[in-house]
C-alpha cells in the first residue's frame, strides 16, 4: 500500500528497499541507540514524554527537509564542480538557514505548531544526528574517478523520515522509563543523571539485538 501511494505521487522505489529502510531506521540502525548520534537531546529533553515527543517530531521534520535539500545540492552542485569535500560546511550552512526559514513560516501560518515545537526547533539545527543523516544519505562510490551515488533521492528522503522516527521512538521510550525510574527507591549517588545513563545503556544493549536483522 505504501508502495502504491509513493508511485501515485511520482516516487518509484523498490518495495523491499522501503521495508529495509523502515527496519533500519526504527530498529536495526537506530540513530541514537545503535549509531550513538544525537545523544545530547536524548538525555537532555527526555524528562517528560510530552516534550520528548515534541523534540522527536521536530528532529524528524528537520531531517526530512534536510535530506530533500542537501541531496540535490550535493549531487547537482558539489559533485559536478569536484568539491565534494565541502559537504559539511555547505550542509551546516543550509540546514541552519532552512530551520530559520521553517520557523518563520510556521510562526506565520501555524502558530499552534510553532508554540508546540517551541525551543526544540532551533535546538535541532546544530544536532549531530541531523548532519549524520545528511552525510549518510550522500554515500557514494568512486570507480575510475566517476562518482556513483549509493542511494536515490527517494531513498534518501525516506531514510530521513524513518531515522527521524527512530529518534522519536528512542527518546519517547527513555522519557517513559525515566518517569518511572525517578519514583523508585534507588541509591542517592545514582539518582538523576547517573541512572539515566545506565537506563540508556541497557536500552542500547537491547536495541543491539536488532542489528542481527541485517
Amino acid at each position: 500500500m505504501l508502495n502504491n501511494l509513493l508511485v501515485s505521487v511520482g516516487f518509484n522505489p523498490e518495495p523491499l528497499d522501503v521495508f529495509a529502510i523502515i527496519i533500519a531506521g526504527l530498529l536495526s540502525n537506530n540513530i541514537i541507540l545503535v549509531q550513538f548520534l544525537g545523544i545530547c537531546p536524548f538525555l537532555g529533553v527526555s524528562k517528560k514524554p510530552g516534550s520528548a515527543l515534541g523534540m522527536g517530531l521536530a528532529v524528524t521534520a528537520v531531517m526530512v527537509i534536510t535530506c530533500v535539500v542537501t541531496y540535490p545540492i550535493f549531487t547537482y552542485i558539489l559533485v559536478p564542480l569536484g568539491i565534494e569535500y565541502l559537504e559539511i560546511v555547505v550542509f551546516i550552512l543550509v540546514i541552519a538557514a532552512l530551520v530559520q526559514m521553517l520557523e518563520m513560516i510556521l510562526k506565520k501560518f501555524s502558530p499552534g505548531l510553532y508554540s508546540a515545537l517551541g525551543i526544540y526547533l532551533p535546538l535541532v539545527t546544530t544536532n549531530c544526528a541531523i548532519l549524520g543523516i545528511a552525510e549518510k544519505v550522500i554515500a557514494y562510490t568512486v570507480v575510475d574517478g566517476v562518482i556513483t551515488m549509493t542511494y536515490t533521492l527517494t531513498s534518501a528522503v525516506l531514510q530521513g523520515l524513518f531515522y527521524g522516527l527512530g529518534f522519536t521512538l528512542a527518546i519517547v521510550l527513555l522519557a517513559g522509563m525515566r518517569q518511572k525510574v525517578d519514583k523508585l527507591n534507588i541509591p542517592k549517588s545514582l539518582k538523576g543523571f547517573p541512572i539515566t545513563m545506565i537506563t540508556a545503556c541497557f536500552m542500547a544493549m537491547a536495541f543491539y539485538v536488532f542489528t542481527l536483522l541485517k
Partner: peptide, 18 residues
C-alpha cells in the same frame, strides 16, 4: 576560487531567502 565562490554564493542565497 570555486570553493570560496560556492560557499559565498550559498550563504548569500540563504541570506536573501531568509
Amino acid at each position: 576560487g570555486i570553493a570560496v565562490a560556492i560557499i559565498c554564493g550559498v550563504a548569500l542565497l540563504m541570506g536573501v531567502c531568509i
